[in-house]
Computed example of a mutant assay.
Amino acid sequence: MIRALLAAPARYWPEWSPHLTHAFAAAGLEVDLVAEPDGGDFDYVIYAPGGTLSDFSTLPGVKAVFSLWAGVEKIIGNPTLTMPLTRMVDPGLVEGMVEFVTGHVLRHHLGMDAHIHGQDGVWRNDVVPPLARNRKVSVLGLGQLGGACARALAGLNFDVVGWSRRAKEIPGVACLSGDDGLEEALARAEILVLLLPLTPSTGNLLDAKRLALLPQGACIVNPGRGPLIDDDALLAALASGALGHATLDVFRQEPLPPEHPFWASKGVTVTPHIASATRPETAAQVVAENMRRAEAGALLLHLVDRAAGY
């Protein structure tokens, strides 16, 4: 019998345990799933931030830790976590992110806000948007989420360029890498999508200097991580008119405090970290498959590269 600990906030148990139990059975695994440490040994930890577990050295027999979050910045620096760590790449999360990103890129591309918020009797038909093939979109981050979004946008005929730290190839998407590639991706981005992980090298990546590389009136969609952007530099660029709009789903502090200037800025749309979510019905299958692999001595899916930070 395999023993697994669901180390997560208490609210996860009623939502996740039925799906995990079903997925384990479907994978042919006999698993005793536990909500709290009970003094016994555990083979695996299924982890989400916000629970009571912080010292992994108290669970010396654990073979691997399976994170339920796509981002691992809240756990990767824990010195007691010495066992293999995987991040969540959930098909449902990917689908949800593609829907959010394509929706907001289309919103900015088509200029929908002028009509949604302009119900004042004024007939605004003086600006006709270009076709998607004439709209330049750059996607920073070409992992599972960013790659899927770049492919979807290219499928809608947008002129898409993607950038990642390491060189990648995606059919239909011009892929750039390195510092020069980043500057090129920014300089042509009428709409910029941020889907990079948060690492020491990506914090404040969009500072005042890099924001100034964007074309006049460019729009930003950030469902990645809040600290990718320098907040003050962003507000200054919006106030000057250098940037047209920023749709932000993630922030340095969440929930975003009511007094934060993003709320009052007409150039900012705040969405409350809803771009996508890990869905238990699909994510549980990913956990079960990784546990099956571990038990079979196979390579784990989505193993975190601790040096890279994701």
Rank of each mutant, 00 (worst) to 15 (best):
residue 227 P to R: 09
residue 271 T to P: 04
residue 248 L to N: 06
residue 263 W to G: 05
residue 271 T to F: 06
residue 217 G to T: 12
residue 233 A to T: 03
residue 263 W to Q: 12
residue 229 I to Y: 00
residue 272 P to F: 04
residue 218 A to W: 01
residue 234 L to F: 08
residue 229 I to C: 03
residue 241 G to K: 06
residue 267 G to I: 01
residue 231 D to I: 01
residue 238 L to W: 15
residue 262 F to R: 09
residue 272 P to Q: 09
residue 252 R to S: 10
residue 274 I to A: 14
residue 228 L to K: 01
residue 242 A to Q: 15
residue 219 C to W: 06
residue 223 P to V: 02
residue 242 A to H: 15
residue 255 P to I: 15
residue 249 D to W: 03
residue 235 L to S: 07
residue 243 L to V: 08
residue 232 D to N: 11
residue 263 W to R: 07
residue 217 G to V: 09
residue 237 A to L: 12
residue 251 F to D: 01
residue 246 A to C: 09
residue 219 C to T: 04
residue 256 L to V: 06
residue 269 T to N: 05
residue 225 R to H: 08
residue 263 W to N: 08
residue 237 A to Y: 01
residue 228 L to S: 03
residue 231 D to P: 00
residue 232 D to A: 15
residue 274 I to L: 15
residue 238 L to Y: 14
residue 264 A to R: 13
residue 271 T to S: 11
residue 252 R to Q: 13
residue 249 D to S: 09
residue 247 T to R: 03
residue 250 V to D: 02
residue 220 I to L: 10
residue 264 A to M: 10
residue 219 C to A: 15
residue 261 P to T: 09
residue 223 P to Q: 08
residue 245 H to R: 15
residue 221 V to F: 01
residue 215 P to C: 05
residue 249 D to N: 08
residue 228 L to W: 03
residue 235 L to H: 04
residue 266 K to Q: 15
residue 229 I to A: 03
residue 231 D to V: 00
residue 247 T to Q: 10
residue 217 G to R: 10
residue 238 L to R: 11
residue 237 A to W: 00
residue 226 G to V: 11
residue 225 R to L: 14
residue 273 H to W: 11
residue 234 L to K: 11
residue 263 W to M: 14
residue 227 P to F: 01
residue 256 L to H: 04
residue 231 D to K: 00
residue 224 G to N: 06
residue 275 A to K: 03
residue 227 P to Q: 08
residue 230 D to L: 13
residue 219 C to Y: 00
residue 255 P to N: 15
residue 255 P to G: 14
residue 240 S to Y: 07
residue 277 A to E: 13
residue 257 P to L: 13
residue 234 L to Y: 04
residue 239 A to V: 08
residue 246 A to W: 15
residue 215 P to W: 03
residue 250 V to H: 01
residue 251 F to S: 10
residue 247 T to F: 08
residue 268 V to C: 07
residue 222 N to K: 04
residue 259 E to A: 14
residue 270 V to Q: 07
residue 243 L to A: 04
residue 221 V to M: 02
residue 249 D to L: 08
residue 260 H to A: 12
residue 266 K to Y: 06
residue 236 A to Y: 00
residue 245 H to Q: 14
residue 274 I to Q: 10
residue 220 I to N: 05
residue 237 A to D: 02
residue 249 D to R: 09
residue 255 P to H: 14
residue 247 T to H: 08
residue 233 A to K: 03
residue 228 L to D: 01
residue 269 T to A: 10
residue 270 V to N: 07
residue 278 T to R: 02
residue 253 Q to D: 13
residue 274 I to C: 13
residue 237 A to H: 02
residue 227 P to D: 13
residue 246 A to I: 13
residue 235 L to T: 01
residue 261 P to E: 07
residue 233 A to W: 00
residue 278 T to M: 04
residue 267 G to W: 03
residue 256 L to E: 02
residue 240 S to E: 12
residue 257 P to T: 14
residue 244 G to Q: 04
residue 252 R to M: 11
residue 235 L to M: 12
residue 240 S to V: 13
residue 269 T to H: 07
residue 214 L to K: 03
residue 245 H to C: 06
residue 249 D to F: 03
residue 231 D to C: 05
residue 275 A to F: 08
